[in-house]
Nucleic acid binder design. Structure first.
Lengths: 347, 347
DNA sequence: ACGAAATATGAAAGCGCTTACACCATTCGA
DNA sequence: TCGAATGGTGTAAGCGCTTTCATATTTCGT
């Protein structure tokens, strides 16, 4: 923190400082840095030397203000820690960074009000595109996004009425498919647990209820308004087993809950899937490794991010054309692994 | 994306637009927004109405440029998806957001070169403080950070030579303690697995080696240059068991590896801890829930973030005073749970 | 009822950069 | 040999905001 330059309060080096040192004007430095082919080689070198000597770092703020191009992509996710968003964010980074864009991530904590504020904050930074999770933005948030005059991608779900473009999958159909799988194995007493903070989880519950109704079965659903952790999965399964001893299969709202439930079941001395079949949701990294390996529904999170990025880049860098379809459904895959099997005694 | 205003290309609303609508000057709007106590109530209301009607969002870029205050805190983490950084980032958000600061997170992918670029990018945004993970920054990165004339906090480790301030724990001592625990239980054949991408993990390996040497035991260490996932834990334990059948205890470099190893062991029909004791590292959320519950070393990640934020706020908002000590060691706690026990036959 | 202090607003300058556009050398074709 | 084309550099303006500083208005003590 030392390195005082004598002139009292330290001042960050500016373009003019570099220009003075290189013996040219500020514009020239700007050009040498951003459009090197426009200046002579000799000059480019001199400027580069001055930049290095001064450890000059361009002021992105000033640059963005002057050029009206921030090179930023705003991304809002409900949670930074939920593994679900890892692949998605990775895809976004993978696609945008090489193109010279910066990905700014803000989290909404699964709360609409916080999301609205995050969107306002992000918009204040003038991103060149916004990628938001889900479709449940507040009216005001939708208005701000629509008014920003930039591409807006909603992800993870599908809807007929996107703000601009939506890329995802039908969470309800996916929940339906997971439940169907258990029904087809012969289960009749199928419970469901979820943390309904997440609106996508609520969609899946709907799918579960529809599948149960279709099969003429009685749904049994418990939930807990908390972030979905392993501990809650363990807690909820205890409640369910106590209240509904006939249960032979569980559809957990996500893999965390599923694994937590599996641990609790094993701790009771019961076996998965013999005593209880469990299917999770999302196919997080541990699902394939766990013992028994967790049946689950794989969601194309990386592809969603990849596709979102491709569309954004096409709009702001390419032809400017939006895709023909404003709603893009990337589907899901049911993964039958070891944690689900036919019930021991057909009941 | 509609809402054209007739004037050709859509233009974002500016302070002047709001001022015009409210029938006042731009300065006044700026004041009504930021220092409401300086303007009359009547005016404040008129301005607020204009803001709402236009859905005006202040241009943070221009604001920051003019005021030389960005209200941003730059944070660099090696990975966004590794659960380890979840609590840490949460602490940072919890502390900074209420104070009106924005937390910008960039990830370095555990690569020094990428970290250097992330730091340069971040510095270009003129954050008011930087919080970086670890102490292994490149020379150039250190130089940039030291030259930025803002508080710089390094976290998660300790060192006698911080750039500015460092808050963390001795990863080596923590690794030593984990190993000691196994030795004290009576184990003699203790293996270690790690993903050495992470320099903190390498410190822990050193602690392991020191503990083994102190006890006159032969170390057995395997590693894999990959992100630490459950699958690698499973893979590595198979290698170890095959190459070193006498092993009775495992110190896994982190909880992900530990749980992956535990699954693989169970899949072989072996029991934890009877056939193999396993201790992990970090105390991630699943460690307490797993069956058997995972012994591990709890690191004060939330507290590190909390402390870092408190120090930063004190420097930039408070007295401007830096803490007396530039190195702050927050320690660790050994958690004895179910996955470690004395070896079945003392060998 | 008067001047001083307090309160409320506006005008002008400038944050560090980029984007026209203007200018000056060269170089080239005819 | 001249004009036009080309390449390389500088000048001026302005991005949208905040910060002095000046000015107009009100309030108060005596």
């Amino acid at each position: 923190m030392a390195e005082g330059d004598g002139s009292g309060r330290r001042r960050r080096k500016t373009l003019s400082d570099v220009a003075a040192r290189a013996g040219v004007s500020a514009v020239t430095v700007s050009r040498a840095l951003h459009r090197p082919e426009m200046v002579s080689e000799d000059l480019r070198e001199r400027v580069q030397r001055a930049v290095d000597e001064l450890a000059y770092i361009p002021n992105q703020l000033a640059s963005a203000l002057a050029s009206a191009r921030t090179g930023r992509i705003g991304v809002i996710v409900p949670s930074l820690t939920n593994g679900v968003f890892g692949d998605y964010l990775r895809a976004l980074h993978d696609a945008f960074l090489p193109e010279g864009f910066q990905v700014l991530v803000l989290n909404s904590g699964y709360v609409a009000g916080k999301e609205e504020r995050a969107i306002a904050t992000m918009l204040g930074q003038h991103p060149e595109a916004m990628i938001v999770t889900g479709i449940d933005q507040t009216r005001q948030a939708r208005r701000m996004l629509a008014g920003a005059a930039i591409p807006v991608i909603q992800t993870m779900e599908v809807t007929d009425d996107p703000i601009d473009i939506v890329i995802g999958l039908s969470q309800e159909d996916a929940g339906h498919a997971a439940t169907r799988h258990l029904i087809q194995l012969g289960h009749r007493h199928i419970g469901q647990m979820a943390v309904p903070l997440d609106s996508r989880a609520r969609q899946r519950v709907k799918g579960y209820q529809r599948a149960m109704a279709d099969a003429g079965l009685e749904p049994f659903h418990v939930s807990m308004d908390a972030p979905s952790t392993f501990a809650y999965g363990a807690e909820l399964i205890e409640t369910m087993l106590a209240r509904w001893p006939k249960m032979t299969a569980l559809f957990a709202g996500n893999d965390n809950l599923a694994l937590g439930a599996m641990f609790a079941v094993q701790r009771r001395g019961m076996t998965v899937p013999d005593d209880l079949s469990i299917i999770g949701f999302n196919d997080l990294d541990f699902a394939a490794t766990s013992f028994p390996a967790l049946s689950t529904v794989a969601t194309p999170r990386y592809q969603i991010g990849e596709r979102a990025a491709a569309i954004v880049l096409e709009i702001i860098r390419g032809s400017g054309a939006r895709p023909r379809e404003r709603t893009i459904d990337l589907g899901f895959r049911l993964l039958r692994r070891e944690s689900t099997a036919a019930p021991r005694t057909i009941g």
